[in-house]
């Protein structure tokens, strides 16, 4: 990370706030889970993967059932190949389960333009035909460019377009949401 971007960094959600937000998501979602055997949690790398894991753990505590979890890396589905930089980092997609006829809870940390979700939906449908997909988001920061709306939102945040809002690890297993002003 540049020195420039780190200059204006501010924590907008503490580790406790993140935990409470995940808890709110879990409470909302579990009310809708009538047939848990059909549900699958899928996190979008990299921030969404963290939220998906925390959410799945919380759902396990609340309902006593452990939903299958998978991870999507959407790098190969992005619409901005020309601007991703010369050496883009790619994470692994890990979907060990069959997603045909399953209900997917697609999880991401921050919802911004909607382009990541568009890419994730395309990626998901290369693996099968889910019965339905719900979108769960930790932070909705607005500025949508596509007609995409989340089904479950824990937090909404007023932001400037050129700010960056990210889930980052502070200490082991502690996650906070930071706001950075792009130089």
């Amino acid at each position: 990370m540049d020195a420039m971007t780190q200059l204006h960094e501010e924590i907008v959600m503490t580790a406790d706030a993140v935990r409470q937000a995940v808890d709110r998501l879990a409470q909302h979602i579990q009310a809708d889970v009538t047939q848990p055997q059909n549900w699958v949690v899928i996190g979008i790398r990299r921030g969404g993967a963290v939220v998906a894991r925390l959410l799945r753990d919380r759902l396990t505590q609340l309902r006593g059932i452990t939903l299958p979890i998978g991870y999507l890396d959407i790098t190969f589905y992005r619409d901005d190949l020309d601007t991703v930089g010369p050496n883009p980092l790619v994470g692994a997609t890990d979907l060990a389960m069959d997603i045909d006829d399953k209900h997917i809870i697609l999880v991401d940390d921050v919802l911004f333009t909607g382009r990541t979700i568009r890419a994730a939906l395309n990626a998901l449908f290369d693996f099968g035909r889910p019965e339905g997909v719900s979108l769960a988001i930790l932070v909705d920061r607005g500025h949508r460019q596509l007609p995409i709306q989340p089904d479950y939102v824990a937090e909404t945040l007023e932001t400037q377009r050129r700010e960056s809002i990210k889930l980052v690890e502070k200490g082991t297993g502690e996650f906070v949401v930071v706001r950075r002003l792009r130089a």
Partner: peptide, 11 residues
Amino acid sequence: TTDATLKGEGP
């Protein structure tokens, strides 16, 4: 030179 934009949270 390569025009690499430092991206925030993906596309």
